[in-house]
Amino acid sequence: MKPVSSVEGRAIPFGAKNVDTDVIIPAAWLKTISREGLGKGAFETVRAQDGNIFDNPDFAGAPILIAGDNFGCGSSREHAAWALLDLGITVVIAPSFSDIFAGNAFKNGILTVALPQEQIDRLMEVSETDPVTVDLDTQTVTTPFQDRFTFEVDPFRKHCLSEGLDEVGLTLERDSAITDYETRRAANMPWLQPNTHITTERTA
């Protein structure tokens, strides 16, 4: 994962509420065994409409997306995060995010910034014409017009994002703690070992 620091650029003033991950990337695009190239299918149903914001040349390559409440609800598909990254989006600003999407975004170095609706409204207005700056270190969103909004980030997530850490690698360092847990588990709850009598061979 690439370290995340400061992102400055145009922000796509999408604004829609309850954007589900089927909208971010429809199921037909999930038939891939790669993480790459999903930008082509991103927001496909939105982009089918004339004059949509994603195909507006003013926002070509914009690194920031602004949306409404509950962004990323629905399916757990991480393809949604991969599709945003493939579009070049590394920050999403919204009043709230679904739990699973926020986790998936974090794991891919996408910063999710939660701000109150009135600040979102102001950023929607600014972003029509001007760039926005999001800084992880100071936890601020600023505009060329002296707007300065602060946001919360979980300290552990901030640390991982700013260092570009591999979470699997970090947890593997806790191997002895996991092994201790497994030993206690096997002793106290022996029934948790699944039976293996199940027939799962091919029948053909």
Partner: peptide, 22 residues
């Protein structure tokens, strides 16, 4: 609960997840 693919990888490799209590 449902998880993303990075978490699938994390569980496959470590049989754990890093979580905050809901």
């Amino acid at each position: 609960f449902g998880i993303g693919t990075s978490e699938v990888e994390h569980v496959l490799a470590t049989q754990t997840l890093l979580l905050k209590q809901s």
